[in-house]
Amino acid sequence: MDIDKTEEQGVIILSPNGRLDSNSAPILEQEIGLINASDNGHHLLLDFSKVEYISSAGLRVVLKTVKERQTASKSFAVSNMQDHVREVFEISGFDSYVTIHPDTLKAIESFKV
């Protein structure tokens, strides 16, 4: 799994590309771990625009990230979910743990509030 990493207005945007399953989720988990360890006050946005599929292994990484960021008082949000991915999120009740923004701009704005 390729993961693009960009920075915009103090927000680190991670954009995984492809299928987020038990084979690829550890790659994302590791990348987020590196950001959490070295982060100096950036917000973190996980951009799902190029994620076509998510399984429970991907959900697990998101939940772990939510918990770790909350514990460290660091902000985190997700954005740009395709319908199927969003459906899996909602069925699992994850939309109550993390804010799903429709697009990157709205997510960045939300961090400024």
């Binding site: 399984s55 429970s56 959900l59 697990r60 939940l63 939510v66 699992s92 009740g93 743990y97």
Partner: peptide
Amino acid sequence: ELDLPIDDQPVGGLGIFL
């Protein structure tokens, strides 16, 4: 248990549910 508060939600265990 999907309605648990986040602090009590175990990381994992959703696979069979899905």
